[in-house]
Amino acid sequence: SIVTKIISIVQERQNMDDGAPVKTRDIADAAGLSIYQVRLYLEQLHDVGVLEKVNAGKGVPGLWRLL
């Protein structure tokens, strides 16, 4: 499923980069989806406690990390 793919992308990127959070844009590119589509999935995963959003604010790139 797309959700499983997104989780594995975040996991893979974090492992490659010493646990650093992953940008929404990088996840979207790797999943082959638009940034808006991916954001909806990321928000859902956040709501159920799978991911945390590391930063927030208007015009700030979203950074995500697995919990």
Rank of each mutant, 00 (worst) to 15 (best):
S1R: 12
S1V: 09
S1D: 12
S1P: 07
S1K: 10
S1E: 12
S1Q: 11
S1F: 11
I2V: 08
I2N: 04
I2L: 09
V3K: 12
V3G: 04
V3C: 14
V3N: 04
T4A: 14
T4E: 12
T4G: 10
T4Q: 14
T4D: 12
K5H: 08
K5A: 07
K5S: 05
K5P: 00
K5Y: 08
I6K: 00
I6A: 01
I6T: 00
I6P: 00
I6W: 03
I7D: 00
I7Y: 05
I7M: 07
S8F: 13
S8P: 00
S8C: 15
S8L: 12
S8A: 13
S8K: 14
I9W: 06
I9F: 15
I9E: 01
V10I: 15
V10R: 05
V10K: 01
V10Y: 01
V10L: 15
V10M: 15
Q11F: 11
Q11D: 04
Q11W: 15
E12I: 10
E12P: 01
E12N: 09
E12C: 14
E12S: 09
E12D: 09
E12W: 14
R13C: 08
R13G: 03
R13F: 14
R13P: 02
R13A: 07
Q14T: 08
Q14F: 05
Q14V: 05
Q14K: 03
Q14I: 04
Q14E: 05
Q14A: 07
Q14G: 05
N15R: 12
N15V: 09
N15D: 09
N15Y: 10
N15I: 11
N15S: 11
M16R: 13
D17E: 12
D17L: 15
D17G: 15
D17S: 15
D17M: 15
D18I: 07
D18H: 14
D18S: 13
D18T: 07
G19F: 06
G19K: 06
G19V: 03
A20R: 13
A20C: 08
A20P: 04
A20D: 08
A20I: 06
A20S: 08
A20N: 11
A20V: 07
A20M: 09
P21L: 07
P21H: 04
P21G: 15
P21Y: 10
P21C: 08
P21E: 02
P21Q: 04
V22Y: 01
V22M: 08
V22G: 01
V22T: 04
K23C: 09
K23Y: 05
K23R: 12
K23E: 07
K23N: 09
T24E: 15
T24A: 04
T24D: 12
T24I: 03
R25I: 09
D26Q: 05
D26C: 04
D26E: 08
D26K: 02
D26V: 08
D26H: 06
I27A: 00
I27S: 01
I27E: 01
I27C: 01
I27N: 01
A28F: 03
A28H: 15
A28E: 03
A28V: 04
A28G: 03
A28N: 00
A28L: 02
A28Q: 02
D29W: 08
D29H: 11
D29F: 11
D29K: 13
D29S: 12
D29Y: 12
D29I: 13
D29T: 12
D29A: 12
A30F: 04
A30T: 05
A30D: 09
A30R: 07
A31C: 12
A31G: 02
A31D: 01
A31K: 01
G32E: 05
G32K: 07
G32R: 06
G32M: 07
G32W: 03
L33P: 00
L33W: 03
L33G: 01
L33H: 01
L33K: 02
L33N: 03
L33Q: 02
S34F: 15
S34V: 09
S34M: 04
S34I: 04
S34C: 06
I35F: 08
I35Q: 05
I35A: 05
I35C: 08
Y36H: 11
Y36L: 09
Y36A: 13
Y36G: 10
Y36V: 11
Y36I: 10
Q37W: 11
Q37E: 12
Q37G: 04
Q37D: 08
Q37S: 07
V38E: 00
V38I: 09
V38M: 06
V38G: 02
V38P: 00
R39P: 00
R39C: 11
R39V: 13
R39A: 10
R39L: 15
R39H: 07
R39S: 13
L40Y: 14
Y41K: 02
Y41W: 09
Y41I: 14
Y41N: 00
Y41H: 05
L42D: 00
L42Y: 01
L42M: 03
L42K: 00
L42F: 01
E43H: 09
E43K: 09
E43V: 06
Q44I: 14
Q44P: 02
Q44R: 14
Q44D: 08
L45N: 00
L45V: 02
L45H: 02
L45M: 06
H46R: 14
H46I: 07
H46T: 12
H46N: 07
H46M: 10
H46C: 15
H46L: 11
H46F: 09
D47T: 13
D47H: 14
D47V: 13
D47Y: 12
D47R: 15
V48D: 12
V48Q: 14
V48S: 11
V48T: 09
G49F: 03
G49S: 02
G49R: 04
G49L: 03
G49I: 13
G49W: 02
V50L: 10
V50S: 02
V50D: 06
V50R: 05
V50A: 04
L51K: 02
L51H: 00
L51T: 01
L51C: 02
E52L: 06
E52M: 08
K53W: 08
K53T: 03
K53L: 08
K53G: 03
K53Y: 10
V54D: 02
V54F: 05
V54C: 07
V54A: 03
V54M: 05
N55C: 13
N55H: 10
N55K: 09
N55M: 08
N55V: 08
N55Q: 09
A56W: 08
A56C: 14
A56Y: 10
G57E: 08
G57L: 05
G57M: 06
G57W: 05
K58C: 13
K58N: 14
K58G: 09
K58Q: 12
K58M: 09
K58S: 11
K58F: 09
G59E: 06
G59Y: 06
V60A: 13
V60T: 13
P61C: 14
P61L: 12
G62T: 15
G62S: 14
G62F: 14
G62N: 15
G62D: 15
L63N: 05
L63P: 02
L63Y: 10
L63Q: 09
L63D: 07
L63T: 08
W64C: 03
W64G: 00
W64E: 00
R65V: 08
R65E: 03
R65I: 10
L66D: 02
L66G: 01
L66T: 06
L67D: 04
L67P: 12
L67V: 14
L67M: 11
L67F: 09
L67Y: 11
